[in-house]
Design a protein around this nucleic acid. Sequence first.
DNA 1: TCTTTTTTATTGAACGTTCAATCAACAAAA
DNA 2: TTTTGTTGATTGAACGTTCAATAAAAAAGA
Lengths: 204, 204
Amino acid sequence: MPKVGMEPIRRRQLIQATMEAIDEAGLADATVVRIARLAGVSAGIISHYFGGKDGLLEATMRQILKDLGQAVHERRKVLPEHAPRDHMRAIIDGNFDRSQVNRAVVKTWLAFWASSMHQRSLHRLQHVNDRRLYSNLCHQFRQCLPKQQAREAAGGLAAMIDGLWLRGALAPEGLDVDRACKLAYDYLDEKLAHSAEHTALRNA
Amino acid sequence: MPKVGMEPIRRRQLIQATMEAIDEAGLADATVVRIARLAGVSAGIISHYFGGKDGLLEATMRQILKDLGQAVHERRKVLPEHAPRDHMRAIIDGNFDRSQVNRAVVKTWLAFWASSMHQRSLHRLQHVNDRRLYSNLCHQFRQCLPKQQAREAAGGLAAMIDGLWLRGALAPEGLDVDRACKLAYDYLDEKLAHSAEHTALRNA
DNA sequence: TCTTTTTTATTGAACGTTCAATCAACAAAA
DNA sequence: TTTTGTTGATTGAACGTTCAATAAAAAAGA
């Protein structure tokens, strides 16, 4: 059924199939044949559209990061500019949306975390994402707390988010999003409670 | 140089070499030849002592878990029985000692986390460890807080510990142990501060 | 409208590489 | 001489990549 304009369709299919394959069998056993079968195409097509398996894996990680960024952005763009608490709650919510907190995405994240330790291209992507989470939080906390305290709070909340997410990924019963959000909100409010003498920008 | 009683020596060498290989090249490229070379022995010896590569990997994870358990135990055994804050600080310290927070151990942990998603034997080991951290924290918080609050606090502190550790593992500059401990201590103290009306067992 | 040609999309068998596991052969110690 | 420990070449399975072959769609020509 060859038609023109298949490239974006195939790319989406293959990226989706990559996550499914990693969910099914893990990154180590996500072979090109397996991924292609899940996408309903031939193995050769992967090299055609992504230049090889590595290209597909990198594109998959990019997609996940893009989805995460969008999930956060969607929630933040409706907020007023000066509302640090709301913005940080939006960041928390966005991280636990993660464009569906489904098993496949969660497992793929974890696999890429491990891989990024030994693949420069993946590490860059992953590091940019880490820094962005921290910087965004830091900037928001900075509106309520002095610099040093803001840095600490941002580091703590970033760790809390990733930790909740990691433990959710590893738990057989999966991630309890409501519980995770609640724990992160609580940490956030604890930190903001100490901003009494600083500025009083907390809303609702 | 064949001598009797080589088994425990070789096992230690090979487990150590496995972590070094994972540090150097990642789990995917930690081949038996590479591991054997690092240990200064032949590849065949792995099957001889561990029944195969999988056996060696499982033994390596067991070793890491054992070291972690010991690091915590060492710090707790000198404490009085009823001192929840001290015990939890000991648990935090133990988790960030992790028998040397060296790069090799950190990378191996992360690799096993990812693998445990698809290998039943590794998942069991990993799950037992996660539950133990949570249960220990829960038991300690229970001495200062009502059941539901204790569960939440334990879940939050466990996530904080793992999150700090994960972000430390991924950061190019490595894990800043003092900073991590401080953030975990702060979280602990925040949670204990709410135990005013409950029991007053906080020490120093 | 009906060919013919060109372009785009795809397949899957073949190839070369890499890996873990095996095992016959060997060496030092008992 | 027997036992224990070790080697490393060999084996077969599995992998990613390549590419000649093919088929459908689009474009060009009649």
